[in-house]
C-alpha cells in the first residue's frame, strides 16, 4: 500500500482578475520507507506542492486534487479538521531558512517542548512538564546535539544555520512522523554542513523507516540520497522513476538537459567545453505557455506540444512527453 498517493493536484492563485494555475495536475506517489527527491528549477512549484500537502498555504492559493490518499484513507472525504489532525500527526516539514522558521523571541527549549505531542505524556500537569523537558532533550540528542543545556537556553539568533536546521529536524521528529518533507533543507549552507544534514536524514530513514520527500533544485546533489526522483518544470509533472532510471536513462528532454548540465554525469565532456543548457529561462507565472510548458525551450518540440501530454508509464518510469527519448536508448 502506498504511503501517500496524490493524483492530479492543482494549485491556483486566485488573487487578481484571472486565476493562475501555478501547479498543473501533478501526481506524486510515495511508499513506506522511501526517500523521494522532488527536483526542479526555482519557481517550478515544488515548495507549493509540499506546502499544499502539509496544508499551510494561505487563503489566496486554491488546491484541488483528483485523489489524495494517506495510508489508504481518502483525505478528500474528511473534513478540514480531521485532515489537519491526521496530517499534523504523521507528516512533518522542515523549511529552507531554518533561522527564519524559529520564533526569534522564544527559546529553543520552549519551541521544542510545545512541539512534543501531548499524547505521548501521562500523569498530572506538573509531571507532564518534566516529561516534556525530558522529551525535548532526548530529541536534541537524536539529531546529534550533545550540549543540550546550552542549546535549550539559546535563542535562534545565537545558533548557527546548521544547528538551527538540526533543531528544526528535532521539532519535526517530536510528533514521530511517518513522512518528513524537507524543503531544500541545506540551501544557503556550507557543503560540510550540507553533508551532515543529509547524513542525519539518511540515518533517520534507515533507523526509523521514516519516509522522506527531499525537495531540491540540484539534481546531482540529491541523487546520492534518494531511491526515487520526481522532476517538475514550471508547475507541471515531467518525469518520475528510480534514481538510476532518471539519472542514466532520462526519457524527458528536460530531464536530459538537467543531467547534461551537470559535469559529473557526462564524464565524456572534453575539458573547457561549454556545458549543455536549454535556451531561455523558466516562464513567469503571468505568462505561462499553453500545453507543455517546456514547449518554447524544448529542442524536440513539435506541433503536438501545444496540447499538454498525458503521463505514460514504462515499468514504473513515468514520463509526460509526446516525443519521449525512450526510443533513443
Amino acid at each position: 500500500m502506498n504511503l501517500l498517493d496524490i493524483r492530479n493536484l492543482s494549485i491556483e492563485l486566485v488573487s487578481g482578475n484571472k486565476p493562475i494555475l501555478a501547479v498543473d495536475r501533478v501526481s506524486l506517489c510515495m511508499k513506506e520507507g522511501e526517500v523521494r527527491g522532488l527536483v526542479g528549477e526555482s519557481g517550478s512549484g515544488k515548495s507549493l506542492l509540499a506546502q499544499a500537502i502539509v496544508g499551510v498555504l494561505d487563503d489566496k492559493w486554491q488546491v484541488d486534487a483528483d485523489r489524495f490518499h494517506w495510508r489508504g484513507t481518502d483525505l478528500l472525504r474528511l473534513s478540514l479538521e480531521e485532515r489537519k489532525a491526521i496530517i499534523s500527526k504523521d507528516v512533518a516539514m522542515i523549511f529552507q531558512e531554518p533561522m527564519a522558521c524559529l520564533d526569534p523571541t522564544t527559546t529553543i527549549g520552549e519551541q521544542l517542548e510545545e512541539a512534543v505531542d501531548s499524547r505521548q505524556l501521562s500523569g498530572y500537569f506538573w509531571q507532564k512538564r518534566q516529561q516534556r523537558k525530558a522529551a525535548a532533550i532526548k530529541l536534541l540528542h537524536k539529531v546529534g546535539i550533545k550540549h543540550h543545556e546550552f542549546c535549550i537556553r539559546s535563542y535562534p539568533h545565537q545558533l548557527t544555520e546548521a544547528l538551527c536546521q538540526r533543531v528544526m529536524i528535532a521539532i519535526a521528529l517530536a510528533t514521530r512522523p511517518v513522512l518528513l518533507i524537507a524543503d531544500e533543507p541545506t540551501a544557503a549552507m556550507e557543503s560540510s554542513n550540507q553533508g551532515q544534514i543529509f547524513r542525519l536524514l539518511a540515518s533517520l530513514n534507515q533507523l526509523k523507516n521514516m519516509s522522506i520527500l527531499l525537495i531540491s533544485h540540484d539534481l546531482e546533489n540529491v541523487t546520492h540520497w534518494t531511491n526515487t526522483i520526481t522532476v517538475m518544470y514550471s508547475g507541471q509533472f515531467v518525469e518520475a522513476g528510480t534514481t538510476e532510471q532518471i539519472f542514466n536513462h532520462p526519457f524527458h528532454p528536460y530531464t536530459r538537459a538537467l543531467v547534461d548540465s551537470s559535469p559529473k554525469a557526462n564524464m565524456l565532456l572534453p575539458a573547457k567545453s561549454r556545458l549543455m543548457t536549454l535556451p531561455g529561462s523558466i516562464p513567469i507565472l503571468q505568462h505561462l505557455p499553453i500545453g507543455c510548458r517546456l514547449g518554447p525551450r524544448c529542442p524536440r518540440a513539435q506541433q503536438a506540444c501545444v496540447q499538454a501530454p498525458k503521463v505514460k508509464n514504462h515499468h514504473g518510469h513515468q514520463v509526460s512527453c509526446h516525443y519521449s527519448l525512450k526510443d533513443t536508448y
Binding site: D103, M168, A174
Partner: peptide, 22 residues
C-alpha cells in the same frame, strides 16, 4: 506572514496557540 508562523502551523499547533505563544 513570517516563516516561523508557517513553521508553527506545520508543527501542528492550533491557531490559538500560534497567536498567543508566538
Amino acid at each position: 506572514e513570517t516563516h516561523y508562523i508557517k513553521a508553527a502551523r506545520a508543527k501542528g499547533l492550533t491557531f490559538r496557540q500560534i497567536i498567543f505563544r508566538h
